[in-house]
Lab assay of single mutants.
Amino acid sequence: SGVNQQQLQQLMDMGFTREHAMEALLNTSTMEQATEYLLTHP
């Protein structure tokens, strides 16, 4: 699906929903950016 499943699982383990985590990974290129994205786009 174009996203790193390991990163997706890590974000879900942090408490984010699958949909939200996927959106973040699709819009960013690193785990750090994805986390930042999730925190700034709740």
Rank of each mutant, 00 (worst) to 15 (best):
G2V: 13
T40W: 07
P42D: 12
L38M: 05
Q9L: 11
H20E: 08
E32Q: 11
A34D: 02
M22N: 05
H41F: 12
Q6S: 13
T28H: 06
M31I: 14
L25D: 00
Q7F: 15
E36A: 09
G2R: 06
M14W: 08
M31G: 02
N27V: 11
Q6F: 11
Q6V: 12
M12I: 12
L11E: 00
F16D: 01
D13R: 05
Q5T: 12
T17M: 12
Q5S: 12
A34F: 01
E19V: 08
M31Q: 04
L25C: 03
L25T: 02
E23Y: 13
L25V: 04
N4V: 10
T17Q: 14
D13Y: 06
N4W: 10
M31R: 02
L39I: 10
M14E: 04
P42A: 15
Q33D: 14
D13I: 07
M22R: 07
A34M: 02
E19W: 12
L39W: 12
Q5P: 14
L39Y: 14
Q10A: 13
Q7H: 15
S29R: 06
T28K: 02
S1G: 14
T35N: 05
G15D: 03
T28W: 04
P42L: 15
S29E: 15
Q9V: 09
M22Y: 11
P42W: 15
G2N: 13
Q9A: 13
L11T: 00
E36D: 10
L11A: 01
S1H: 14
T28R: 02
T40R: 07
L25M: 06
T40H: 11
Q5L: 14
V3F: 11
T40Y: 09
R18H: 09
L25K: 00
R18T: 07
M14G: 04
N27R: 09
T30W: 01
F16N: 04
D13F: 06
P42G: 14
Q10T: 14
S1E: 13
R18Q: 11
L8W: 04
A24I: 01
S1D: 13
L38A: 08
L8V: 07
A24T: 01
T28G: 03
V3M: 08
T40I: 07
R18S: 08
F16W: 09
P42S: 15
N27M: 13
M31F: 15
T40E: 10
S29H: 12
M14T: 04
Y37C: 06
Q10W: 09
L26K: 10
L11R: 00
T30Q: 02
N4I: 09
D13E: 12
L39D: 12
N27Q: 09
V3Q: 07
L8H: 03
N27H: 11
L8S: 01
Q6W: 12
Q9M: 12
Q6R: 09
Q10G: 05
M14S: 05
S1W: 04
H20S: 12
T17E: 13
M12K: 02
A21S: 10
S29P: 07
H20K: 12
H41L: 14
F16C: 03
Y37H: 09
M14V: 04
R18C: 05
T35W: 15
D13M: 10
Q6P: 07
Y37M: 07
Q5M: 14
M31E: 02
N4Y: 09
M22I: 14
T28A: 05
Q33T: 04
L25S: 01
Q10D: 08
L11D: 00
L26R: 11
L38Q: 03
T17A: 15
Q7L: 10
L8I: 07
N27F: 08
M12G: 01
Q10P: 03
M12F: 03
G15P: 00
V3N: 06
H20Y: 09
L25F: 04
M31T: 04
S29N: 12
A21M: 01
Y37E: 05
Q7N: 14
R18V: 08
Q7K: 07
A34Q: 01
L26F: 07
L38T: 02
T40K: 09
M14F: 06
H41M: 15
L11Q: 00
H20I: 14
F16H: 09
S29D: 14
Q33R: 04
Q7T: 07
M12Q: 07
E32F: 04
T30H: 03
M14K: 06
R18K: 12
G2Q: 14
H20W: 13
L38D: 03
L38G: 02
H20D: 09
R18A: 11
M22W: 10
F16L: 02
M12Y: 03
N4M: 11
P42K: 15
T17S: 14
T30F: 02
P42I: 15
E19L: 10
N4R: 08
T28C: 04
N27A: 13
N27W: 06
H41E: 10
Q33W: 03
E32G: 05
A24N: 00
G2C: 07
Q33F: 03
Q7R: 07
E19D: 13
P42H: 15
N4A: 08
A21W: 01
S29A: 13
Q7V: 07
L25A: 02
A21N: 00
A24G: 04
T28I: 01
H20G: 06
V3L: 10
M12L: 08
Q5N: 11
F16G: 04
M12H: 03
Q9D: 09
Q10S: 08
D13L: 10
Q5F: 13
L8Q: 03
D13H: 09
T17D: 13
H41P: 06
E23K: 07
E23I: 10
L39S: 14
T40Q: 11
E23M: 10
A34E: 02
M12A: 04
L25E: 00
Q33H: 05
M22Q: 08
Q5Y: 12
F16P: 01
A21D: 00
P42V: 15
S1P: 14
E23N: 10
Q7W: 15
Q33A: 13
E23D: 08
F16Q: 02
T17Y: 07
P42C: 10
T40A: 14
T35M: 15
T30R: 01
N27K: 11
M12E: 06
E19K: 08
T30G: 05
A21R: 00
T40N: 15
A34T: 02
G2D: 11
T28N: 05
G2H: 13
S29L: 09
Q33G: 08
M31V: 10
Q33V: 02
G2E: 12
V3K: 05
T28S: 07
P42F: 15
L38E: 04
V3G: 05
M22S: 08
L11I: 05
E23S: 07
A34I: 03
N4E: 08
G15R: 01
G15M: 03
M14H: 05
T35E: 14
A34G: 01
H41V: 08
E23Q: 10
L8P: 00
M22D: 02
Q9I: 10
L38P: 07
F16T: 04
Q6C: 08
L39F: 14
M31S: 02
V3Y: 10
Q7D: 13
H20A: 14
T40S: 14
A24R: 00
G2S: 12
E19M: 07
M14P: 00
D13K: 07
T17R: 11
Q9G: 08
G15H: 03
H41S: 09
D13V: 06
N27G: 05
L38K: 01
T35H: 15
T30S: 13
L39K: 15
E32N: 05
Q7C: 03
Q7S: 10
Y37L: 09
L26W: 07
E23V: 10
Q33E: 15
L26P: 00
T30K: 02
A34N: 01
S1F: 05
M31N: 02
H41Q: 12
E23G: 05
G2Y: 11
P42R: 11
Y37F: 05
L11N: 00
L11G: 00
M12P: 00
L26M: 13
Q6M: 12
L8T: 03
N27D: 03
V3E: 06
R18D: 04
A24P: 00
M12W: 02
A24F: 01
G15I: 00
H41A: 08
L26E: 09
E32D: 09
M14L: 12
T28D: 01
R18G: 05
L8G: 00
N27S: 09
F16K: 01
E19Q: 11
A21E: 00
T40F: 08
Q5K: 14
T30L: 02
N27L: 10
H41T: 11
E36S: 05
E23L: 10
Q10R: 07
L26D: 05
T28M: 03
T17L: 14
Q5V: 13
T35Y: 15
L26V: 09
T40L: 12
N4Q: 11
L39H: 15
Q10M: 12
H20L: 15
Y37P: 05
E36W: 06
L11H: 01
E32T: 06
Q9E: 10
A21F: 01
L26N: 08
N4F: 13
V3D: 06
